[in-house]
Nucleic acid binder design. Structure first.
Length: 484
DNA sequence: AAAAAAG
């Protein structure tokens, strides 16, 4: 295992990490940091909870120099306010031993503090699109010298809901810059689109060849939900042995609110996070959950990506997500930094097709969530699910591991997940983990994959074919020239 | 279709 000190990172940054107990680099970090430091544009893909944030964050901090002039020189864009706070904290930690200052710019909060920090000369900005554009339009945020640009959860940022804003933001930053895009999932078409904003990017993927598309540390369980009292089963799961913190995802804000009340009535310490809450209430919930004052978080997909909380042992999909990418990100709130986790999904009558889609994309080999409980003794044992409940243990498939490819060519695969940053934060919780996470991101660049065509339908995670292709074509490791 | 993101 490689340590951060061996990656050419400035001593004060190595010290900042060490003070949090973070010494070893995760694969993605080991792979992307040496490329990011000299300014190589990167599309970094690595599974959830494996350290992507430091993969881009360390090069950003180091490239600004040990004592940067006042003024915004780096911009990190994220899809949610809570993630902005989290990434801000990570960047703030990385810069703790140098004068560089970081500011979080996002909506739902007073302008004043944010504007003051910008006026004070903050060099690194972490923010969500709306408020960033708002302040830029008011000439309170000058991005014309932001030569370091990062899109975290990049595939989400380039999705329809955000694309227009991102394009606008790119018109405000220098044409000559260092651009990094990171995510656990990078569908082929999105990679192709991303290249419009990058210069000869290398697509790095940190994947264990023996692993499948999903995180090996996460055990997946799927239940057919009709004829089943979901609230009751969820309550049982929450009482199962080994459960520490749990995140429950619902499809709508209303369902989240309703469930938090229901579980509260049942005596659980549950908090909710969704877009109908005030920003203050959202942050209060997140803080209570991180601190352990609440051990159940009920959320909409606002919390599906990036959020890194220690000791989350269970993720429960009260409602199945719409696609495999969201499934992967939601499940990725557990099993971070080397820890293990369990992801339980309830499939309602009308959503069976969604499971079919996810099952196929992620290669679970579990077409129907209809097996009865008796056929899955492990399920019963592990979760203490009430007898008669239907459900089935899904074993994560082992897919062929993708090899490194260079994406400049336009690789296609969509596999990645993101790596979590949290581990690092924790510092101590899982020693090895921190290191791992950090290193994980870099990917393999690629051997040229075929993506140029963009034909792949699967987006997020690579389907088996993709992998094969890569493999075949690919060189593992050796970067190929970018495909035009 | 829902959720997110400016107010």
């Amino acid at each position: 295992m490689t340590t951060f000190a061996e990656l050419g990172i400035d001593q004060d940054i190595v010290d900042a990490l060490a003070s949090k107990g973070i010494v070893d680099a995760f694969p993605i970090q080991e792979q992307t940091i040496p490329l990011g430091l000299p300014g190589q544009d990167i599309i970094g893909q690595a599974k959830t909870g494996t350290g992507k944030t430091f993969g881009f964050g360390i090069p950003v901090v180091q490239r600004l120099g040990p004592n940067p002039e006042p003024g915004v020189k780096a911009l990190i864009v994220v899809p949610t306010r809570e993630l902005a706070v989290q990434v801000y904290e990570d960047m703030d930690m990385l810069t703790s031993n140098r004068p560089t200052s970081v500011v979080a710019i996002y909506g739902g909060k007073a302008y004043e503090g944010q504007i003051d920090q910008l006026k004070a000369g903050a060099q690194i900005v972490v923010g969500t699109p709306g408020r960033l554009i708002d302040l830029a339009n008011q000439r309170l945020l000058d991005l014309s010298h932001a030569t370091e640009v990062v899109l975290d959860e990049a595939d989400k940022m380039l999705d329809l809901g955000f694309l227009a804003d991102i394009e606008k933001i790119f018109t405000k930053v220098p044409a000559v810059r260092h651009t990094q895009l990171f995510s656990a999932t990078m569908p082929g078409p999105i990679v192709a689109l991303a290249r419009r904003f990058m210069s000869n990017p290398i697509h790095m993927r940190a994947n264990d060849p023996d692993e499948g598309l999903t995180q090996a540390n996460i055990k997946h369980l799927v239940y057919r939900a009709h004829s089943l009292d979901k609230d009751e089963v969820i309550a049982r799961i929450l009482q199962s042995e080994g459960r520490e913190k749990a995140v429950i995802f619902t499809r709508t804000k209303r369902a989240a609110q309703k469930l938090v009340d229901e579980l509260g009535d049942r005596g659980f310490n549950a908090a909710a996070v969704h877009g109908d809450m005030s920003q203050e209430a959202r942050e209060r919930s997140m803080a209570a959950f991180k601190a352990g004052k609440k051990d159940v978080l009920i959320a909409t997909d606002v919390a599906a990506r990036g959020i890194d909380v220690n000791d989350v042992t269970h993720v429960i999909n009260h409602t199945i997500p719409d696609d495999e990418k969201t499934y992967l990100h939601r499940a990725g709130r557990t099993g971070r930094a080397g820890n293990t986790g369990i992801a339980v999904t309830f499939v309602d009558w009308d959503d069976v097709h969604k499971w079919a889609l996810i099952n196929r994309a992620l290669e679970f080999g579990q077409p129907e969530p209809t097996e009865t409980y008796s056929s899955s003794p492990h399920l019963y044992t592990d979760l203490n699910i009430p007898e008669g409940t239907k459900g089935r243990l899904v074993t994560a498939p082992k897919a062929v591991a993708p090899k490194p490819e260079r994406s400049s060519e336009g690789s296609t695969d969509a596999e990645g997940e993101r790596t979590p940053r949290r581990r690092r934060r924790r510092g101590g919780s899982t020693p090895g983990a921190a290191g791992e996470a950090a290193g994980a991101e870099r990917g393999e660049a690629g051997a040229g994959t075929h993506d140029g065509a963009g034909k792949e339908h699967h987006d997020g995670n690579a389907a088996p074919r993709r992998r094969r292709r890569r493999r075949s074509g690919g060189s593992s490791g050796a970067p190929t020239a970018p495909v035009a």
